[in-house]
Design a protein around this nucleic acid. Sequence first.
DNA 1: AATGCAAATGTAAGCGCTTACATTGGCGCG
DNA 2: CGCGCCAATGTAAGCGCTTACATTTGCATT
Lengths: 341, 341
Amino acid sequence: MSKQPLPKLEDVARLAGVSTATVSRCLNQPNQVVEATRKRVQKAVDELGYMPNFNARSLAAKRSKIIGAVIPTMENAIFARAIQVFQERLSEEDFDLLVASSSYKKDVEEKQIRSLVSRGVDGLLLIGTQRDRKIYEFLQEREIPFVIAWSFYDKRDEATSGQLVGFNNQKAMASIVQLVIEKGHRKIAMLAGIKDNNDRASSRIEGFKAKMAEHGLMDPCVIECEYDIDKARKAFAGMRQTFGTPTALICANDVLAVGAVLEAQSQGLNVPDDISITGFDDIEIASIISPALTTVHVPHKMLGLHSANTLLANINDARIADDMELKTNIVERYSLAEPKN
Amino acid sequence: MSKQPLPKLEDVARLAGVSTATVSRCLNQPNQVVEATRKRVQKAVDELGYMPNFNARSLAAKRSKIIGAVIPTMENAIFARAIQVFQERLSEEDFDLLVASSSYKKDVEEKQIRSLVSRGVDGLLLIGTQRDRKIYEFLQEREIPFVIAWSFYDKRDEATSGQLVGFNNQKAMASIVQLVIEKGHRKIAMLAGIKDNNDRASSRIEGFKAKMAEHGLMDPCVIECEYDIDKARKAFAGMRQTFGTPTALICANDVLAVGAVLEAQSQGLNVPDDISITGFDDIEIASIISPALTTVHVPHKMLGLHSANTLLANINDARIADDMELKTNIVERYSLAEPKN
DNA sequence: AATGCAAATGTAAGCGCTTACATTGGCGCG
DNA sequence: CGCGCCAATGTAAGCGCTTACATTTGCATT
């Protein structure tokens, strides 16, 4: 059974007795075509089982109805969830989603961005602001709308064109540190994310340090660790050995916090009686682990939704939408308490 | 700053003093071009910052180097993880991934498949076998290679062309039910997934029922429930009210099991002393919740990887790769014990 | 030096659409 | 009844590549 040639626009035109231009209009700007012909064309389309060839369309029309997204990894629930909503929203507007993941690697991300642009994406979703200036220039030169999700800064670095849809990582982290300090903790350490090429991780560390300094707690212990439960366990174990055990451990995200909790418990520590541990993100595991984590709630789905809306606005109106700051809030559960000693 | 026209293949050809065909060959079959010219062309490419237009390429060459995937949802960690690996593998072969999610809806899935085909994808990843026969016909007619992940059956339904890369859901479920029965349980109920348009969910239910019947335990209680912790809690609560409390609850996946555990605990039941609860999938939360779940381990990443390999094989060799059955295994943790009474 | 052949390169016809511009036709109005 | 105008449709020129086929080149043979 060999592939019979698929019907093309021309075949539809012939069958309907109109020109290709009219068929094209029926498909793309139906209101420019009078009802009678539109119906005739529709009939021909149905009869032939015609489906447009999007590559040809993209080539001729110079728009692809494809949005590209480069995220660090889909294994991280926070991105998966946001991407899911992002995609659903785009789908409503007949855009499809080309995804790539960079595994947090700068050069991989750059390659992927270029590849997506080569594919003629109409817009791009990126995570965080930290990347080579030349990439921003590249995108601007080609006039590709893009939004940067997850980060938000009050003052913009000029280099980052594109729209920001995110939250202030530094402030959010500072707020939970503030809470921990208010509970009476002084010996506080941080289990942080890897800050290389990751402005969210850096900002959270800054937020921690700044708030500590504000209370006269200088040079606190900060250990960077990859996003992984087991690595977090080891990192926490190492921290205890090297720096001793803090009364409170601030984690840059819930996965690290879960690792720390698990390790603390297996080392015979009671959370929160012996050590308080806080998370960041408020993903599912935060409320499943026992004790449930006191953590910073991040509106992941909102991030996905607003990123989509902002991007669509920029594509359709060619008018630059505003940056959007989303709010986080602390959800207090049971992993944070006043220090016992 | 208006968009200056991007360099095209012709510009490169002119600058390098060769024909467009040669440039094209340099890019696609470099070994057909002699070293000297190749270098000259490369220089021109670099100088102009030339990037090929993939839409034009796809149109002319009739292959897009894009793979499509339609999954139920990315919010489900099992799919997200598999897709991540799938994408990484494709990326190695310079394929990009167009993803769509169907939210478990049959008609949405169909629409997305058609859209992806319109985009000219070179291959397709689908989840599970259960869909309209006409979709299979559609795909076959157009000779689009596709693999169906997550399901595996010893005997193939003829309608499902495409390759299967999955595991036998029925057998896997039967094996854990067997274990539960061996522990001495007789009053066993199941918290199942929604089986509409979902052969994995159906198979797991069948596996449960068959194994129960094998031990003379007829008409066991089976309640279907959406993939959601809170809904699982309510479903379990409802089950207790209507059918009483089983000594063991088999859940169709870990998310449902976690919901059941949480609800059981909040109703004052001890897991596993008062009730044993088993999961399925072995995702992260299975080992984080306390008690950690005894569950069926599914090799999600393998699923993603082998799906990619199978698909690539079918695309490149135009030779149909074999179906692939992956093995699951039971991981015993602490949520299953012998019944006390 | 003439010959043959394969390897390297060039020529040009599409791939299936969109859209600027040209043409047609219907209708209100003087 | 003829004119002008606008809405509906048609014509045809690309969009930026790939590739079948034609041509040229280089080189080993005789």
